[in-house]
Amino acid sequence: MKKDVLIAGVGGQGNIFASNVLSQYAIAAGFNVLGTETIGAAQRGGSVVSHVRISDKPIFSPLIPAGSVDILLGIETLELLRHIRLLGKDGYYILNLFSVPTVYTNLGIDRYPRQEEIIQAARKVCERGYEIRATHKAAQLGSIQMTNMVMLGVLVKVDDFFDYDEVKKIVEKLSPEMFSEKNLLGFDAGYEHF
């Protein structure tokens, strides 16, 4: 049994927090966990990628090998496409329909692919995918900061490996007190979506 989860987004989307929740859950469930993140200059608008490796066997490499990703969480549309090549043949993706333009797409120098193009391209690469307007949902609930929680809710719903009650407990435990209630709200909104 192994779950290699790649979370791709941009700085400030709660990528690291989400990977922390998954790691803690898997450890509590008795699995080996190893992960790493590529942050670079993320605070200045760069991309953030987290690798979370969960297995019942020993894991050595913190990076998920190409073609071995089981679950790709794309918190941002372009970043999902950028990392979709790492998906395994039986893997699937959860895509947040939310785009963060780059400095050059803002300027009209680069072209940001249209959302339909992104959805089509993703579906063509991988048959199993879930799309959700997680940021929109989070905003409706009061803060786009909960985007990552909505995504986690979806993950727990579509993947039996993750137990609703146990993941929820971890979200509650890891959330700073002032965000705890909202985070759980976001988590449930994602869970109930599919």
């Binding site: 670079g40 608008g45 991309s47 496409l81 780059t102 050059y104 680069d110 089509q120 391209a121």
Partner: peptide
């Protein structure tokens, strides 16, 4: 190496250079 996915239809992806906030 594990057989890669078919990426032939991926649109061209703009880079995401860091930027002053």
């Amino acid at each position: 190496a594990p057989e890669g996915l078919d990426l032939s239809d991926l649109p061209e992806l703009p880079g995401r250079p860091p930027n002053l906030c």
